[in-house]
Amino acid sequence: MKAKEIRDLIDFISGSGLEEVNIETEEFKINVKRSSPQVTVAAAPAPAAPAAPAPAPAPAAASEAPKAAPAAPAPASDAHLITIKSPMIGTFYRSANPESPAFVNVGDAVKQGDPVCIIEAMKLFNEIESEISGKIVKVLVEDAQPVEYDQPLFLVDPS
């Protein structure tokens, strides 16, 4: 990663309100944390073992972002719902462009592999697909809002 890309990432994090970002590729690993008004960056070479291009979002459920905490305490009736989480940091979009309808709305049925949103990260638009089949119960993020890694995006009723 070049110095300009790192500066652009730090500027994006500063403007988005994100507190921490972890990025890992085959070549490097970078951890950016904001502990006060300043931003600190720690970078290290990635381990020699081959790593997957994108870490699975499920294992990091315990480290949910503080912004997502209000959505975490759900009533007992929501206990069976499954959360679709963001696999990356970026800007959340419900549709492919402003003129297009949203990929999914509350009440829509989705199948595994159906696109549910787009997350823009560093000028790249990444289509996010549903990992489960079910019915969209709630959209947890507003359109064009910044999202963090592993932040809940949708609640899905798998039944």
Rank of each mutant, 00 (worst) to 15 (best):
Ser133Ile: 05
Asp143Gln: 12
Pro50Lys: 06
Ser159Ala: 15
Lys111Ser: 15
Ala102Leu: 07
Lys67Val: 13
Ser63Gln: 06
Lys67Phe: 04
Ile132Asp: 02
Ile89Asn: 00
Pro115Trp: 07
Ala76Ser: 14
Gly17Arg: 01
Glu24Lys: 11
Met1Val: 08
Thr40Ala: 15
Ser14His: 09
Gly107Met: 08
Gln151Val: 03
Pro50Gln: 11
Phe28Gln: 10
Ser14Arg: 10
Pro158Gly: 11
Phe103Ala: 05
Ala58Leu: 03
Ser133Leu: 10
Met88Ser: 04
Lys67Asp: 02
Gln38Ser: 15
Ser133Cys: 14
Pro45Ser: 10
Glu27Trp: 07
Asp157Met: 11
Ile30Val: 10
Lys2Arg: 10
His80Asp: 15
Asp108Phe: 05
Ala79Asp: 14
Ser16Pro: 00
Lys135Gln: 14
Lys111Glu: 14
Lys111Arg: 14
Ala56Asn: 06
Phe28Leu: 09
Ser159Lys: 15
Pro158Leu: 14
Glu26Met: 13
Gln151Ile: 01
Gln145Phe: 08
Ile10Met: 07
Ala3Arg: 08
Ala3His: 04
Lys135Arg: 15
Cys117Trp: 01
Ala42Gly: 11
Ala72Trp: 03
Pro47Met: 11
Phe12Ile: 06
Ser133Pro: 08
Ala60Val: 06
Ala62Thr: 04
Ala46Gly: 04
Ala44Tyr: 10
His80Ala: 15
Ser100Cys: 13
Lys2Met: 12
Pro37Trp: 12
Glu20Ala: 09
Glu129Leu: 07
Phe28Glu: 13
Thr25Gln: 11
Ala71Thr: 05
Phe154Arg: 01
Val39Arg: 02
Val104Tyr: 04
Gly113Ile: 07
Leu18Gly: 03
Leu140Glu: 01
Pro45Asp: 07
Ala109Gly: 12
Asn126Ala: 06
Pro115Arg: 12
Met1Trp: 01
Ala60Arg: 03
Val116Asn: 03
Val106Tyr: 08
Val147Glu: 02
Ala3Lys: 07
Ser133Met: 08
Ser133Glu: 13
Pro98Ile: 11
Ala71Met: 07
Gly17Ile: 05
Tyr149Ser: 01
Arg7Phe: 04
Glu127Arg: 03
Ile23Leu: 14
Phe12Lys: 02
Ala51Pro: 06
Val104Asn: 05
Phe103Arg: 00
Leu155Ile: 07
Asn126His: 09
Pro87His: 01
Ala52Trp: 01
Arg7Gln: 07
Thr91Ile: 15
Thr83Asn: 02
Ala109Gln: 15
Ser77Lys: 14
Gln112Thr: 15
Pro115Glu: 11
Val32Ala: 04
Ala65Asn: 04
Pro53Val: 06
Ile23Trp: 05
Met122Pro: 01
Asp108Lys: 10
Lys85Tyr: 03
Lys135Thr: 15
Pro87Asn: 00
Pro98Ala: 12
Ala68Ser: 09
Thr25Asp: 13
Asp150Gly: 04
Val137Cys: 10
Ala49Met: 13
Lys4Asn: 08
